[in-house]
Nucleic acid binder design. Structure first.
Lengths: 140, 140
DNA sequence: AATCGTATGCAACAGAGTTGCAAAATATTC
DNA sequence: GAATATTTTGCAACTCTGTTGCATACGATT
């Protein structure tokens, strides 16, 4: 576990520091996306706010994590899949926010629909966030 | 013009106040979406921050405007089309943010693609935000 | 182990967003 | 149309979020 985390940091030419290891570990051990506040107030750990901001920023720049937009000023962050490493962001997936458990997850395996644009418009990036109920919450 | 604004407010059972008229007028006379800061610092008008927050909140609740999510904590607001009045939000359109002029617009006439979800997942709302270049900026 | 470069944490700040409350404006009633 | 009731506004004060500069601490390199 330790080694995998260090390896990811090294692969992205980042110094392997205690904070970065701990924060990256949070992402690796959580299946859902995390908000800044989730990380800052994570039980058992007390991270300096500034360190969390800077770490998330560096991770996004390096393509280790990506942002998930939201309609209520609570941006979340999630791990990128392998082909995003080295700074190439190719987010051809969408995001699902469950209104039951609040969990945000990436749906990687479901094809991104192509959207038709008006004449002379060109698209760089398409963000899709779906709000609904996940299978776990539906059963309850 | 004045009468149309008052009519919209009255239709939503809101008192017709000076601030609400002015803010609603900003939306009616701007084709793009507006951020909180756009409204607060609008040239010629000085709105109290608190009033702007409360007005936008009420407008969203009543379905006069809707929010447009973003990946950088800068939520924008845009007018809803007619069938959204009376609080029924049926946003079956997507949003386009131009990286050239920064303008955010609603694309109402382009069909929303249906997205396939994992087994036992259900969707309430699909938010699509496309980043790209609009026709005006492309010509330059 | 010593040096170099980067990351961290603190302080201080700027901005975003919220709440309570008295004053002012709007709606309602007669 | 004036008086009353209701709602909205603006101010003050506050919390939370996010940023920057800088000295110290840490990790990488030799």
């Amino acid at each position: 576990m330790e080694s995998r985390i260090s390896e990811i940091l090294r692969r992205n030419r980042l110094s392997v520091t205690s904070s970065r290891q701990k924060i990256l570990n949070l992402f690796l051990s959580n299946s859902g996306a995390l908000a800044h506040a989730d990380i800052e107030h994570k039980a058992g750990e007390k991270f300096d706010r500034v360190t969390v901001y800077r770490t998330l920023q560096v991770f996004v720049e390096k393509g280790i994590i990506h942002t998930i937009p939201s309609g209520d000023n609570s941006i979340k962050y999630a791990l990128c899949k392998n082909d995003c490493f080295e700074g190439r962001h190719h987010d051809n997936h969408f995001h699902f926010v469950c209104s039951g458990c609040g969990k945000t997850e990436c749906l990687e395996d479901f094809i991104m629909p192509s959207v038709k644009l008006p004449r002379d418009y060109s698209a760089n990036n398409v963000e899709i966030v779906i709000n609904g109920v996940c299978s776990n919450c539906r059963k309850k």
